[in-house]
Simulated assay, not measured.
Amino acid sequence: MKKVIATPNAPAALGPYSQAVFANGVLYGSGQVGLNPETGEFAGTTIEAQARQIFRNINAVLTEAGFTPADVVKTTIFLDNVADFATVNGLYEQFFQNSQVLPARSCVEVAQLPAGALIEIEYIATK
C-alpha cells in the first residue's frame, strides 16, 4: 500500500508528483529545492541559503511522515556547480549530526535544475 505524504511546511510539488510517498516501510522523498514554502520564492541566491532551506524542507516532510533525519538511509545531491560541494557538505554534516549511521550518498553536477535552483536533494528513509 502506498501513502502520499504532504505538508504545507515544505514547498508544494512543482509538477505532477508527491512531496514523498511511504510504501512498504520506506519513505521516498522527492527532490527538494530551496523554496520557502510560505512565499514560494527561493530562500536566497546563495548555495548556503538554498541548502539550508532544503534541509528545513526535508525535515518538515520527514516530521509529517513520523521520521527524523536519523532515519534517512540514502540521499542524492544535484548541484549546478560542483565547486559548491564543500559548503553543502558542511551543512549536510550538521543536518545529520545526530545520526549514528550516516546515509549513503551520491553527489553529481548537473547542467540545470528546476526553476533555476542551485541545488536539489532527494532522499530515502526507513525505520
Rank of each mutant, 00 (worst) to 15 (best):
V4S: 09
A6K: 15
A6F: 13
T7P: 05
N9F: 13
A12F: 03
A12I: 11
A13F: 07
L14N: 02
P16C: 06
S18P: 06
S18A: 14
A23G: 00
G25V: 15
G31S: 14
G31Y: 12
Q32W: 01
Q32H: 08
V33E: 05
V33D: 03
G34W: 04
E38T: 14
E38G: 11
G40V: 07
G40L: 08
A43W: 01
A43S: 11
T46Y: 01
A51V: 14
A51I: 13
Q53S: 10
Q53R: 12
I54K: 03
R56Q: 09
N57Y: 02
I58Q: 01
A60W: 00
A65H: 01
A65S: 00
A65G: 02
G66W: 02
P69E: 05
A70W: 00
D71G: 08
T75W: 02
T75E: 07
T76E: 10
I77E: 07
F78H: 05
F78N: 06
F78Y: 13
D80W: 05
V82G: 06
D84E: 12
D84H: 15
D84T: 12
F85C: 05
T87I: 15
N89L: 12
G90P: 02
G90L: 11
Y92S: 03
Q94E: 14
Q97Y: 07
Q97P: 01
N98Y: 12
N98E: 13
S99W: 02
Q100W: 10
V101R: 15
V101D: 10
P103R: 11
P103Q: 13
A104Q: 15
V108L: 12
E109P: 08
A111V: 14
P114C: 08
P114R: 10
L118A: 06
I121R: 02
A125R: 03
T126R: 04
K127P: 02
K127I: 04
K127Y: 06
K127E: 00
